[in-house]
Design a protein around this nucleic acid. Structure first.
Lengths: 67, 67
DNA sequence: CTGTACTGGGGTAATTTGGGAG
DNA sequence: ATTGTCCAAATTACCCCAGTAC
């Protein structure tokens, strides 16, 4: 069957992710730059985030453990 | 792996490519015009994109996991 | 040939990017 | 150390309508 790779993921824009976390889009950009959240870029250089990963991160916030 | 011409290459419409990158179909058209992505024109002038190239693009532009 | 959906081109807002400073 | 804001430039999104795809 088909290898569900990146291609099958729903992607989100920086603004959408920012709205979910209630932070500034710039902050999301920094998370991406720091490698805290995976991101893929359009040929034009804009970032897109995987919806599944965003949700995972949001889940992780609930039972946070402050390493 | 080079710029080979595969006979059984599956082609994608601008709308399909746009959905994968989470962008507007017009944006994909701009990428083609700018030469950022290879495109093939139908006799009617509509663009078609190679699926292999699109996936390679998605894969290659997947930058994350830094630390 | 008819009909629906999608695409191409142009033009104009909105979003995103990157750096710098608070 | 993390975040929010300011700036200029680039990329992208949405509007129109005629033509193509099937």
């Amino acid at each position: 069957m088909t290898i569900t790779h990146e291609a099958g993921e729903r992607l989100m824009t920086p603004g959408e992710v920012a709205a979910m976390f209630r932070v500034d889009p710039k902050t999301v950009t920094r998370w991406a730059s720091a490698g805290r959240i995976g991101s893929i870029r359009t040929p034009g250089g804009h970032r897109r985030f995987r919806e599944s990963e965003v949700r995972t991160l949001l889940d992780g916030l609930t039972s946070e453990a402050h390493r």
